[in-house]
Computed example of a mutant assay.
Amino acid sequence: MKKIYLLLVCLIGLKCFAQQPDIALLRANYNYVHIIDTNFKEQPRKEEMLLVIGKNASIYTSFDKINRDIAMKKQVEEQMKNQEGSNNMKINVSSLGYRPTTNVDYFTFASEGKFFVKERLINNYLIEEPIPVFNWSIEKDTMSIGGFLCQKATANFKGRNWIAWFASDLPFSTGPWKLNGLPGLILEAYDDKKEVQFLFNNLEKVIAALKEKEETDLKNKVMIMGSDKFDYMGSDISLPKEGIKTSRKDFEKLKQAQKDDPQGFAKTQMAAMGMSGDIRISSVSNSKTGGAKVPVMNNPIELPAIN
Rank of each mutant, 00 (worst) to 15 (best):
T101R: 09
A153Q: 12
G113A: 04
A153N: 02
W165L: 07
L179Y: 11
G184Y: 13
Q79W: 08
V93C: 01
F148K: 14
K73Y: 00
P132Y: 12
G184F: 08
A153E: 04
I163N: 13
T174V: 05
N67E: 07
F134P: 12
G97M: 07
T174R: 04
N87C: 03
R99C: 04
E139Y: 14
F198G: 07
R99M: 15
S144H: 14
L149M: 13
F107W: 04
P130V: 01
K152P: 08
F109I: 02
S173R: 14
Y98G: 03
K158V: 10
P100W: 00
E84Q: 09
E188Y: 15
S144I: 12
G97I: 05
S94Q: 06
Y125D: 00
S173W: 12
W136I: 07
L182C: 05
P183R: 12
M72N: 03
K73G: 02
L149A: 15
D191H: 09
M143F: 14
K114N: 08
E139N: 14
G147S: 02
C150T: 02
S94E: 10
G184S: 15
I186K: 00
I91P: 10
E129M: 06
N123Y: 11
I145F: 05
D191P: 10
G159M: 04
L96P: 09
N67I: 03
N92G: 13
Q75H: 03
L96Q: 12
S95Y: 15
S111F: 04
D191I: 05
W136G: 10
T108P: 10
S95F: 11
L126A: 09
P183V: 00
P176G: 03
K114R: 15
K158R: 10
Y125S: 05
I122N: 02
I131N: 00
Y125E: 03
I145N: 02
Y106Q: 00
L121N: 06
G85T: 05
A164W: 01
N88T: 07
G175Q: 02
R160Q: 09
P176W: 05
Q151V: 11
W162D: 11
Q151W: 12
V93R: 03
Y98D: 00
K81F: 00
R99G: 12
L121T: 06
E84C: 08
W136M: 02
M143N: 08
T101H: 06
D192W: 09
A110G: 08
S86K: 10
A167H: 01
F134S: 05
R99I: 14
N161P: 05
T108R: 03
K178Q: 08
D105K: 07
G97Y: 07
V133F: 13
E195M: 01
N92T: 09
R160V: 08
K74D: 00
P183H: 07
K140N: 15
K118E: 07
R160L: 06
D169H: 10
S111W: 02
G85F: 08
K90T: 15
V76E: 01
S144N: 14
D192Y: 09
G113Q: 02
K152D: 03
C150V: 03
I66R: 07
P176H: 06
Y98T: 10
M89V: 09
E195G: 11
F116W: 10
N67S: 00
I163P: 10
G146I: 13
A110R: 06
T101A: 13
P171A: 07
N92D: 06
S95H: 15
L185R: 05
F116L: 02
